[in-house]
Structures are given as C-alpha cells and as structure tokens.
Design a protein around this nucleic acid. Structure first.
Lengths: 201, 201
DNA sequence: TTTAGGATGTATGCACCATTTACATTTGAC
DNA sequence: GTCAAATGTAAATGGTGCATACATCCTAAA
C-alpha cells in the first residue's frame, strides 16, 4: 500500500489539486502553472501530466472542487431555505463566497468553459438544480420555476461579478450584504407577476 | 509627417490595438500575446513595449475600446430609452454584445481589473452612469435610482455571463432575447416596490 | 542648414512556461 | 518470482513576457 521509497509520491493527483488550489488563492490564475504545482508537490515538472492531461484539465478539477464548496457554503448559510428571507441569506452567501475566493470564483465562471470536462459540467448542473430547488420550495405557487430560478441566479451572479470587478463598493461585508438583500427582495416581491410578464410577451 | 522609410511604422500604437483586438476575437485571451501582436503589425517582438508598458496595459486598452463599443451598441439598440420596453431592448443588446464578442467581453469584465488603468476606470464609470441615466429616465418616480440601476445592471450582467458560460441555452438569438426580456420585465414590474423593500429591512 | 536629442524600432538574452518523447522505477497481478 | 502497467524522471522543443543595450529616424533649436 504505502510506498517504501521516495520515487512514487503516493497520491500525487490529490497533492496537485491541493497545490493548484493554494497557488490560485495565493497568486491568482497567473500563478497557477503546472511547474509551480509540481514544485510545490515536490515532484518533477512533468509528473502532473500523469494525472492531468493539460493545464486546463487541472484548472477544471479545481473549479469542480470550487462548485462543491460553493454548494456547501450555500447550504451552510441556510440548510433548507423556504422563505424570501432564507433565499436572501443564501444570495448573500453566494456573493460572499465570490469575494472570499476571487481567483477560485473566476476559475469557476469567468474562464471559457470546457464542455468536455464532465466533472465540471456535472458540478454546474448540480448548482443549477440546487438554485431551482430553493426557488421551488420558496415559491410553490410559481408556475415557471425554471424562469424564476434563472432570473434569481443571474441577479446574484451578476452582483458577485460586479463586486468582484470593483464596480460596486465592497469596503465592508455589511454594505455588500445590504445591497444584495435589497436587490433580491426587489425581485421576490414580484415573483407572482413573473409568469404574467412572460405570458404577456 | 508620413515616414519615408520602413523603419518607423507610422502608427504602431493603433496597429497594436487593432491586432490585439483581432487576435482576441480569433483565438481568445490565450491567443493574445505581445509577440503575436508584434508579428501581425509586422514589427519586432519588443516594439509594442514602446507604446504599452506590459501585456496588461494592452489588454486594458482593448477593454476600454470594448466599453466604448458596448455603450455605442446599447445606444444603437435604443437612442433614448424611456420605457420598460426600451430598457428591455437595451438589456437584450447587452447580452447579445457579450455573445457576439465573448473574448472581448471577458477581457472587459472577467479578468482581475487593474485599478491603476484610468482609461479602464473611466470607461466603466461611463457605462455605470449610462445605466443609471436610463433607469432615471425610465423610472422618474423611483427614489433610490442607484439601487435600482445596480439591480438592473447586475441582472443583465449575470444573464450575459451565464449565457456565455453555457449555463443557459443559446441555440438561437430568439430564445436568449425572450429569456432576457422575461427576466427584466419581472424586475421592472416591481420597481415602485424597491424602495419599500429596502426600507423594510 | 546643420545638428543634437528624443522618439521609435531592433537585437539579444534571460527566465519561465506547456507539452512531447524517451527512459527509469515501482508495484501488483499472475 | 516475473512481467506488464502505473507512475515518476530527464531532456528537448518552442512559445512567452520582459529588461537591456543598440540602431534609426524625425524634429526643433542653433
């Protein structure tokens, strides 16, 4: 089981993932090079290629991990959201996650997504379904749950990016949270009207 | 005025900008290297450094150009938006711009923004003010124009990114436009309630 | 009109990077 | 125990950003 020499690492795949994640958080996307990952894992420069086809594959793996963490983070904000207040709390958590892990969040959403990374596709599908579930629970009367979920996700996602890009004041967590809550409540208030708005077109 | 030899380019600054823009649209952010720009401009590899301090400065310049084009694109969608319908048309134009110029849009919003690029800061401030102006005209009764403008921008911005990242169906321009309109109308319907929602917290 | 000097472009070199290919070591199944 | 597959290494190729020193050209002052 355990290697008795130093030739084999033991679990290089996981070590690379961890190193990549660390480098991403420390130096941003530019600091995440396969060579740096290899150095940090204490292994030759090309060893990571045994576990990841190329740089993008490694980034995708980190992103997928990010999706799982985001889902966890949201669930922690509120286990079973069922009211507009709950949903607002989840929205705040979403934006906070982006601000606390800017490089990771960018890797998850801001880079051209590789459609062939099933790990990544599955992870984003899970997030999407999660949002849909929340909306369904919080607004059982709404017919087109998907449309409302999309709108909510887009609003929160856009808020995250605008904050991340310095387009909105992020001096304190409170001002951010207040702004997110205000925006989400604006949308919630109209939820019943959404179906009509769509039908009216 | 005009150079009589081949040593000097004439307007290398503009040529670099154009080449960078082309490379960005052709091969994405990864294809935008200073060396490739120099090659395309028919000039030595380090010549661009006479006009741009580093790669990021060039990207910022391209992004700033993108902001101006986006503003123009939106203005074309509707010169003086003053109704929810007008605003929805502008929102659709925003998302369409992102889908038509994915790499440029990412360069504008998805990369860590350099706060020292005044060209870029000024350009984004202009966009922000533009959105605020539209909201002010379209909803003269709303007190906190800034809050509503932020919400609108975030929603549209988030829709652009989710489409860009393949999280939403983009098979035809129509399905995209319909979804954007539906989301924006949902928000519009509640505009008068926004102030209350904020006050209620 | 001549002639510095600044602006612009070039040549070279360094450090870093991704990726490929060939080779070495270890491990586990038989 | 043997041998093939899995894992790690070494070396080489070709690309990149960028700093430094050098070449050329334009312009404005003398």
């Amino acid at each position: 089981m355990a290697q008795n020499s130093t030739y084999h690492h033991g679990d290089l795949r996981a070590a690379c993932l961890r190193a990549a994640r660390e480098l991403l958080e420390e130096d941003g996307s530019a600091g995440l090079s396969l060579r740096a990952v290899a150095r940090r894992a204490g292994v030759s420069a090309t060893a990571p290629y045994r576990h990841y086809a190329d740089r993008e594959a490694l980034v995708s793996a980190v992103a997928a991990e990010g999706y799982r963490e985001l889902a966890e983070h949201l669930a922690t904000a509120h286990p079973v959201p069922s009211t507009p207040d709950d949903l607002a709390a989840v929205a705040v958590a979403y934006v906070r996650f982006a601000l606390e892990h800017p490089a990771l969040f960018r890797a998850m959403f801001a880079e051209p997504c590789d459609p062939t990374s099933e790990e990544r596709v599955a992870a984003t599908a899970a997030i999407s379904e999660y949002v849909r579930g929340i909306v369904r629970d919080a607004f059982p009367g709404v017919e087109d749950t998907d449309a409302l979920a999309t709108t909510v996700w887009a609003l929160v996602h856009g808020l995250a990016f605008l904050h991340l890009d310095g387009k909105l004041d992020t001096s304190t967590p409170e001002v951010v949270a207040d702004r997110v809550r205000a925006s989400v409540f604006a949308l919630f208030a109209v939820a019943p009207a959404l179906r009509e708005a769509i039908a009216a077109r």
